[in-house]
């Protein structure tokens, strides 16, 4: 079982890289939101590959500092993504506030760079969940792109926020490594589901290889 979950963890990294590369197809011809989301996928794939290389691949060192790049990078790009979808430019101010908050924390306690920032990640995820709810609400009446992705962001970030938030508490518990890994494995499964939704979005709405033949005209 553990082996299977480990393989699933590795597979999620390959899938993450594949999804990022897939979204590069049609990068130029699609909307601004598409391009930002593609950049987000590439960033996440790079962070995952980096964290894997440092933590499990060759170096076997602590890769916790990657979590800062993960939550801040994710927050910045997804805020720009939703600012474009929701057409609300004031959301950019939240990016500035979040970066200030992270910089202040690191200047105050430089050692915190090598620890996990539970509060920062929870706040960032909560705001991103809020964006996705607002966007899903908007898409009830308006024709909107990225509805499947938004559903994925909503369900994955909402569930994973709790897993990340309890990470520090759980890691200090006197438990076997296998028991501690249950939450990490659950996160991998949820992340896989999220990636699958992102892939469904691409194949359904952005697959430029799929032609639609309708009323005698071929719409590519």
């Amino acid at each position: 079982m553990d082996e299977f979950l480990n393989s699933l963890g590795d597979f999620s990294i390959y899938l993450s890289v594949f999804t990022g590369l897939l979204y590069l197809i049609g990068f130029r011809k699609n909307s601004k939101s598409y391009r930002i989301f593609a950049l987000y996928l590439i960033l996440i794939a790079l962070i995952q590959v980096g964290a894997y290389y440092v933590g499990r691949g060759h170096l076997h060192k602590s890769n916790l500092y990657y979590s800062h790049f993960y939550y801040l990078g994710q927050f910045v790009l997804l805020t720009i993504f939703y600012a474009s979808l929701l057409k609300r430019k004031w959301l950019y101010s939240l990016v500035v506030l979040m970066l200030f908050y992270a910089a202040y924390g690191l200047i105050k306690d430089p050692e915190s760079f090598y620890r996990y920032n539970t509060l920062g990640m929870t706040i960032a995820h909560a705001i991103l969940v809020l964006y996705s709810v607002l966007y899903l609400y908007k898409s009830i009446t308006d024709k909107g792109e990225f509805v499947i992705v938004s559903s994925g962001i909503f369900f994955y970030l909402l569930s994973s926020t709790l897993i990340f938030a309890t990470h520090n508490a759980v890691s200090n518990l006197d438990l076997t490594k296998e028991t501690k890994n249950i939450l990490a494995d659950l996160n991998v499964i949820l992340y896989m589901l999220f990636l699958i939704l992102i892939l469904i979005e691409w194949f359904r709405n952005y697959n430029s290889f799929k032609g639609v033949y309708k009323n005698g005209s071929n719409e590519g």
């Binding site: 909503f154 369900f155 909402l158 569930s159 709790l162 309890t166 759980v170 518990l173 501690k180 939450l183």
Partner: peptide, 17 residues
């Protein structure tokens, strides 16, 4: 505590879905 977290995650997941 692990069980509690798992239940809470399941509930959040159900709510999200």
């Amino acid at each position: 505590l692990i069980n509690l977290v798992l239940i809470a995650v399941s509930l959040l997941l159900a709510m999200a879905l």
